[in-house]
Design a protein around this nucleic acid. Structure first.
Lengths: 136, 136
DNA sequence: TCTTGACTTGGACTCGGTCAATCGTAGGAT
DNA sequence: ATCCTACGATTGACCGAGTCCAAGTCAAGA
């Protein structure tokens, strides 16, 4: 059932049938769909939903922090509803499968001051790459 | 002077005027140009060079391992000639400036076995984000 | 139920990148 | 030095991902 939908309602997000199906499609763990995949799945329940609406809704969800954008392959961005707990990604270099992972330690601590070039560093995004069990 | 050009010559890479200017444009530290930027700079020295040639040449350089692709913003890929020594990237969230950085420690070691989902993990790509001195 | 501002739509458009047919040339062979 | 030819360069059409806009629709408060 949809945690995401519940949180959105609580925020007073204006709820439309389009936004509801997009939120429902995104629900779950290890979900990393492209905008077109979201559109295709949403269209199974609401055939007239337009691409622009899916892009708008995803963009809104990202800007309010309920969904994060992941771009692991330089192709289409993927949308990750698991924004409530920080995590990194493990990607199969062959088939593109993505898993959420929780490394120990803080990568920010591994960047010495003299390697910061005066930046105020706030975040470290880690992508682990390798071959999944099926592709190895 | 061009280390890259020298390495390419040593590999027996067929040298054309187009390939030479692309290699020259890419020479240096903290260089992270988009394909279009490479094309623009190359065209200053060789006005008739085509976009397709730049893409072909960059693709070739990547596949022989002399240049690496970096995609930090989900927009155009950037090309990094500093492929001979492993490093990560520090990106300004505001202006997009990129610096090469060398964190201590091995991020691969921070991913416990039970978080590997049966993958053979071979690489960790880290992108540090923050604000550069000028943007802060 | 009415009203209205927010949301949705379809289509044109942009940007980054790829492809294929044709032309040109680097560099080995003579 | 020149000739040949396979490999590289060029042009322009094309593609996928994403954005934009003007017009239509509708959720939800009064």
């Amino acid at each position: 059932m949809s945690d995401l939908l519940e949180r959105l309602r609580r925020r007073g997000w204006r709820m439309t049938s389009q936004r509801r199906v997009v939120a429902e499609v995104l629900d779950g763990d290890h979900v990393h769909l492209t905008a077109d995949e979201v559109h295709a799945r949403a269209a199974r329940r609401l055939p007239e939903i337009s691409r622009a609406t899916v892009y708008n809704t995803l963009g809104d969800l990202v800007s309010i922090g309920e969904v994060t954008e992941v771009s692991t392959d330089g192709r289409a961005k993927r949308y990750d509803p698991n924004a409530h707990r920080p995590h990194q990604h493990l990607v199969c270099s062959n088939c593109g499968t993505i898993r959420d992972v929780h490394p120990t330690g803080d990568p920010l601590a591994d960047l010495p001051a003299e390697e910061r070039f005066g930046f105020t560093v706030s975040e470290a995004v880690v992508t682990y790459r390798g071959l999944c069990a099926a592709c190895a």
